[in-house]
């Protein structure tokens, strides 16, 4: 049965040709649909935030305190919906519309907390809490420092 034939069968497509084939066969991202959904989902989340601010103002807080209280409330709602297993569904539908508002930030903290709790509170939750939100914090804080220095010298 031994049959040592010489090598020859190799696909005749070059890497360059394959690249254009792959582009041709890979479905395009549904940009228009995503943008429209993000606009409405993000908009609805912001409207809810505004309603909560207004309610705090009616309850007697001044504008700045009402904004702070509303932010905390939105974080709570984002965290709770993550815990209930709802926010990932909102995220799948709304994309950037549910990631950019502060509820999305809450989701990016609570999701790893839930995921890594099984590895314990220290090396699980503690070490991996910021696996998703880490970049936002690092570059958000770094940017605020730079802006703060610029502001300091301009004034």
């Amino acid at each position: 049965m031994a049959n040592q034939s010489s090598r020859q069968p190799t696909i005749t497509v070059t890497p360059e040709q394959y690249k254009s084939l792959a582009q041709q066969y890979t479905p395009k991202p549904t940009v228009v649909k995503n943008v429209v959904r993000a606009f409405f989902v993000g908009g609805i989340i912001c409207v809810i935030g505004q309603i909560i601010i207004n309610l705090f103002v009616i309850a007697g807080l001044n504008r700045i305190d009402a904004s702070t209280a509303a932010t905390a409330t939105m974080i709570f709602l984002g965290a709770m919906l993550t815990g209930l297993g709802v926010y990932d569904e909102i995220g799948k539908f709304g994309g950037a519309g549910s990631i950019v508002p502060i509820t999305g930030f809450a989701n990016s903290i609570v999701a790893p907390a839930m995921e890594f709790k099984r590895e314990g509170y220290v090396l699980g939750v503690g070490a991996k809490l910021f696996t998703v939100a880490g970049p936002v914090l690092v570059y958000g804080i770094a940017t605020s420092i730079v802006v703060g220095i610029v502001y300091f010298f301009l004034h």
Partner: peptide, 17 residues
């Protein structure tokens, strides 16, 4: 998901491919 991508409850959109 948790090893290769993101925590399971993280709300993101998957690519069409």
């Amino acid at each position: 998901e948790r090893q290769f991508r993101a925590p399971t409850e993280h709300g993101t959109q998957r690519a069409m491919s």
